[in-house]
Each structure stands twice: as structure tokens, then as C-alpha cells.
């Protein structure tokens, strides 16, 4: 269990963004941080990894304290046994695929290395450089490089955002297989509702820097009407309103209410 009760204010030129996170991520499962752009998902990953430092609060992983502002304790990022796959993959362009993976390995573990190369179908790519790979191939290499570190926690920042639907489904399946095989915790950022429903075992919904709900993804969608997310109205007809929620277009049947109170382009709140 990763328990995270932290506050952090990010200052930009225009305004301050307040992050107030109280959440528990489940161990050995796929947790998904879901929310609209700018809701603070990536910031949570950076705070968990230790790349950013919270202003206050506490982060614990099982019985280990990663951060405790009250006691001035803060484990270095390298001491948390975390692997982080950034949005841009951060594959090192000067190294081949094999070198990228080997460089990340803390100890020589040829069995793990071979297993990852086989599972992620990388054998034919081993001597290629990152700039010779497609988007999906880069994602697979980034996953292998992260997992060869044998992390307790794998952080994935929108890993499948720039990939087409077919490849995304395949990569999700790789991720599930590897998670079940090696039993580690995943916290993945996504603003794709379909992705959350297909991969998440535990979902945390963020909105404007705060956790508005968490739990089983299906329960969240079907049984928690109190949670609302901001969406843009795209189209209105007699019985349906189409809204843009994050990157998803959703049709909402509105037979019981009138549509006079809002029009196309308005920002509305949608209950899940």
C-alpha cells in the first residue's frame, strides 16, 4: 500500500496551482490516475518519485517512510526503487536498444533480461538506436528498461497516449502480463476513459488538484453519482447531449431535463 497525504503549490507566472492529495494506492495491482488535463496527474507521479518535493505531508510505502515533512525525512529518488516511464520515453539516443536496457539493470540478470526481451518482442530490435524505432517499439523498450530495474513501483505517465488503438490494446496486454508475472505495483496516468476501464484495477480520479474519488473503476462509473468532472458541450439534440470529457466524446441522454440551461461550447459538470 502506498499512502500519500501531501500538499504542494506550484507557482507559475499567471497563477498558483494547489495540489492537495489524500490517496491510497493498492500494492501489486494496476492503479490508474484519471483526470482532465491540468488536474495534477503528472505532478502526483513526480512527487511520489521524489523528483519534486511536497510542501507538507507524508508518503509511505508499506512500512517505509518516503517523505515526512514533520520529521524532515525524504528518501532520495534512487532509494525508493521506482522506475518511471516518462511521456517522451526518455530513451537515450546514443545507446542501442540493448544498451538502454542493460544500462538500467542494477545487477546482471540475464534470465530477466531475456524474459523481458521475449515478452515484449524486442529481439529483432536490440541493435537499433531509438531514432530508428516506431512509437510503439519505443514504448516497449521503455517498458523493458523500466522493468529490468526490478522496481517495487512502476510509474507510467500516459504511456499509450501517442499510439493508435490496435497497438494500445496490445501494449496494455503486455503490461497486464508483466504485472501478473512479476507482481509489482503500477501507477499509471491516463485521461482516456476507455483505457481506465480496460486496464485499471484501482482508479483514482483527480480534479483540479484534488482526489474526488477512488476505487474499482467499474463501481466508480456506475455507482458514484456524486463525482463530477468538467466537460465541454459539443452537440445538443432533442434527447442527447454530446460532451467532451478529457479526450473522450460521450453521449448523455437527457430526456428528463430541458436543454435550455446550456448551449454548445459551455463547460458543464458531468456526474459519473
Amino acid at each position: 500500500m502506498i499512502s500519500c497525504h501531501i500538499k504542494k503549490t506550484y507557482h507559475s507566472k499567471k497563477k498558483a496551482f494547489h495540489l492537495n492529495i489524500n490517496v491510497k494506492f493498492k500494492s501489486n495491482c494496476i492503479n490508474v490516475l484519471f483526470g482532465t488535463s491540468g488536474s495534477g496527474k503528472t505532478s502526483v507521479l513526480r512527487l511520489l518519485s521524489g523528483l519534486d518535493t511536497p510542501d507538507s505531508g507524508k508518503i509511505t510505502h508499506n512500512h517505509s517512510v518516503w517523505f515526512n515533512e514533520a520529521k524532515k525525512e525524504a528518501l532520495k529518488p534512487s532509494e525508493r526503487n521506482i522506475a518511471y516511464v516518462f511521456q517522451d520515453n526518455a530513451l537515450f539516443p546514443n545507446m542501442s536498444v540493448l544498451k538502454n536496457i542493460q544500462f538500467a539493470s542494477k545487477e546482471e540478470n540475464k534470465t530477466l533480461l531475456n524474459n523481458l526481451i521475449s515478452t515484449l518482442e524486442l529481439r529483432h530490435l536490440l541493435h537499433q538506436k531509438p531514432n530508428e524505432l516506431s512509437g510503439g517499439q519505443k514504448q516497449r523498450v521503455a517498458l523493458a528498461r523500466a522493468l529490468v530495474q526490478q522496481p517495487d513501483l512502476l510509474l507510467l505517465d500516459e504511456p499509450f497516449a501517442a499510439i493508435d488503438e490496435t497497438l494500445r490494446t496490445k501494449l496494455q496486454s503486455y503490461l497486464k502480463t508483466l504485472q501478473q508475472k512479476y507482481q509489482f505495483t503500477i501507477i499509471m496516468v491516463s485521461h482516456n476513459l476507455q483505457e481506465v476501464l480496460s486496464i485499471a484495477q484501482h482508479v483514482v480520479i483527480l480534479n483540479y488538484g484534488e482526489v474526488i474519488d477512488q476505487g474499482n473503476p467499474k463501481i466508480l462509473v456506475r455507482a458514484n453519482p456524486k463525482n463530477t468532472l468538467k466537460a465541454t458541450v459539443l452537440h445538443i439534440d432533442a434527447s442527447t447531449v454530446t460532451v467532451l470529457l478529457a479526450t473522450q466524446q460521450i453521449n448523455i441522454h437527457i430526456s428528463k431535463i430541458t436543454t435550455n440551461s446550456f448551449s454548445v461550447g459551455d463547460i458543464v459538470e458531468v456526474s459519473l
Binding site: 518511471y84 517522451d88 526518455a90 537515450f92
Partner: peptide, 25 residues
């Protein structure tokens, strides 16, 4: 990209190793 440096840090590499293996090349 700052992510090169941060990936190296999370891998537990020293500053010298990050500099000589990742950044300078």
C-alpha cells in the same frame, strides 16, 4: 530533455555516470 537526467537519477546512477554515459554523448 530533463527526463534523461531524471531517468538516470531514478536508476541510481551517479552524477558522473549520468554525465559521461547519458548527457555528454
Amino acid at each position: 530533455p530533463k527526463s534523461y537526467l531524471e531517468t538516470g537519477m531514478l536508476m541510481g546512477k551517479s552524477k558522473l555516470s549520468i554525465l559521461t554515459h547519458i548527457l555528454l554523448p
